[in-house]
Structures are given as C-alpha cells and as structure tokens.
Design a protein around this nucleic acid. Structure first.
Lengths: 192, 192
DNA sequence: ATCAAGAGTGAAACGTGTTCTATTTTGCCT
DNA sequence: AGGCAAAATAGAACACGTTTCACTCTTGAT
C-alpha cells in the first residue's frame, strides 16, 4: 500500500471513528487525505473496499497483539473467552469505527469476498491457537496436523461472534451480552 | 398494512427477485406500484424498511408452512437439519431476492432493530419446536417451561445459520456447504 | 535533455436514496 | 351539496457514491 493509499485509509478510519459509516464521505476523505477523488478511486474500487482495508489493518494489529503470547486460561473455554473478549473490546473501543467496519464485513458485496474470507481465516487461526493453548502461529509456522473438530468448533464460535457483532451494531444487544453468548456456545461445544 | 403499502412491498419483491438489491430503485417501485414517491416515503422510512417488510412477509409464509406440522426426524439433530434445510431452500429459491433480504437483515440499520429481533424470535421458535419434536407453537400456545439450554442451542444454531447466509450472499460458499456447517454445529451441540 | 506513458488533479456529470413543495384528490362531516 | 383536513401526487431539489473528462505533473527509458 503506497503513501496515498495509507493516507486515504487513515482518513477514513478517523472519520468513521468520529461519526460512523455515513460520515465517511469520499469527497471529505479525498480532501482530508490531500488527494483527488479520482485518486481515491484509482486505489480503491469503492467505499466498502476502503473500509475493508481499514478492517484488515485494524484486525491485523489486534490479532498481532493478542496472538503474540500464549493465551492465559486453564481450559479451552477460558482461553477462548479471553481471546474473544480481547478481540471484541479491542475492536469496539471505537464503537463508531467498529460499526462501520462490521457493516462492510456484512455487506455481502461480492467484490470483497476474498478479503472477508481472509478476515475469517485470521480469526479462526487465533481461536484455534486459543483452543490448543498455543500462541497464535504465523501462517504455516507449525507443521502440525489440523484437527478437524477444532477447526469446526473455531468456525462455529466465529460465526456466533460475527452474528453477535452484527446484532450489536444494530443495537440488538450490548457487549457483555455478546461475550456471554459466545461463552455459552463455548461451554456447550467444549463439553461435547 | 394498507393497499398501497402492499403494492409497494410486492413490487419491491418482484424487482429484487428479478435483479437484486440495486434493482429495487424506489422511483421504479413507486411507478410500478402506481403510487407517488412521496407515498412510498409516507409508508416506509427507507429502502431497508421496505425490504425488511418483505422479509417479514416471506419468512412468515415460510415459517407458517414449515411449522404447521410436526417436524420429521428421530433426533433433534435430524429435525433441526430438516428445518434449516426447508428454511434455506425456501428462502434461496429466489436467490436475488434472498440476497437483498439478507443484506437488509445484516445492514445494522438501527431503525429496523425491532423487526430484526422479531425475525430472530420467529426462527428461534421454529428451531426450538424442532429440537423438541413439536409442531411450531403459536406464540404462547403451550404454557410449558422454556428450557434455557434448548433456547441457547437454538440461538447458537440460528447465529451460525445467519452468519452462513451472509457468507452465502457474499459468495463465500454455496447452499450445501451452508447446510453442512449448520449440521456440524448441531452435531456438536446435541452430543454435549 | 527529451519525450512518451502513466499518475494525479479539479471539476463536472450521472444515478439513486431521500427530502421538500406546491397542487390536487379523497374521504368525511354537517 | 359544500367545505375542510388528511393523504396523494408530480416534480424539483439535495446528498453522496461513482464515473468521466480534459488537463498537468512525474518519471523512467533512451
């Protein structure tokens, strides 16, 4: 990502953080990033793509921080709870930004499918590491076998988390509720 | 819902079915429903609200059909699979419409929170009936105790289904994949 | 140093969701 | 029937994502 692209994403993040999705007006983004509107569209195909790039950036930061050291907790359930709690709180620390990012993630825009899949993979890796009680591996770092059951559980938990995020973004429930829902799912899945 | 509102929703459904979300141009909806644009906005606050009304209508039809008789299957897992399969196939029989409706459902628009919650409640009721092996009850028809564990499982499955629908809408995976993901979750949850 | 190609720019233009206004129609009360 | 308030209408107007255009600037190969 070149300099201009970085400025564009940064600006979009700043605007989304202050006033949410609709406040990310591309004319403002361009002006504030000291770039012409055409340049924005040379770098990004749409507003969604800018926000997905922002999500990538933010989530990579978060995942790097969380995945750096071994996740605390004596059981998979505790470790998973820790990871989702850290992810959620990290993301939702800036609620307007988070809502905007979740909205893009859930937009169903076919042009960002791959990016969405990457995000899912990133979270899944983190959750699987938590289940095993390891530090999140760099991709392919550990040659070990991938336990299918663990992958399934991680994927289910991630789906529950994602659906809850969407619910939170729409005002359906608050963060403690969200974390409890994920934890209840963990509880059931890990006693199976 | 009065006559005009019905025509508006019907028209929106027809347009979404033919060419998807972006094809639901409110000027066209108004023209095709023989109504002025202002009248559309007197009935519905936004395009999302029209589509959510359509979702309500469609899902109520589906749920009525599916919930009418006792769900077949000898285990909760089988019955749940049947219900989600019926729901999914019923909804996705018109893929463009389904994508548009899922998109509205996932939009995170705070103005439709209640409607989204109703939808969730509807599905949850259906799934809980399937878990118990009953015909889906009318709300409050049976005075029985609400098993918290069953509600939790139903809610988790619904979240997995919803997240998968969003993934499907974005081209992340196909229907068999979606159904298998929900079934895998069932399998784990019901052996707990 | 020159020049062609690509990148960037500012501005206009377009499409569609949403809002607003002035006018007309409708439904109802007496 | 006459009159009035509410609802509907046609159409303009506005906001913002997106596209296009004509022009200028940068850059890298020769």
């Amino acid at each position: 990502m070149d300099d201009r692209a970085k400025r564009i994403v940064e600006t979009a993040v700043a605007l989304a953080e202050r006033d949410g999705y609709q406040a990310v007006r591309l004319r403002d983004v361009a002006a504030s990033a000291q770039v012409a509107l055409g340049t924005v569209y040379k770098r990004f195909a749409s507003k969604e793509e800018i926000l997905i790039a922002a999500l990538e950036q933010e989530s990579e930061k978060l995942v790097a921080k969380i995945g750096k050291k071994t996740v605390p907790g004596v059981s998979p359930r505790e470790r998973v709870r820790f990871v989702f709690s850290a992810l959620t709180k990290g993301l939702l620390r800036r609620p307007n930004l988070a809502k905007a990012l979740v909205r893009s993630l859930a937009s169903g825009d076919p042009n960002i499918t791959e990016r969405v899949a990457s995000f899912h993979a990133l979270i899944t890796a983190l959750v699987m590491a938590a289940i095993r009680g390891e530090a999140a591996a760099e991709q392919g770092e550990w040659g070990g076998d991938v336990d299918e059951r663990e992958r399934t559980i991680a994927s289910i938990l991630q789906n529950v988390w994602f659906a809850s995020l969407v619910g939170w973004a729409g005002g359906l429930h608050d963060v403690p509720q969200l974390l409890e829902d994920v934890d209840k799912a963990s509880q059931l899945l890990f006693t199976a």
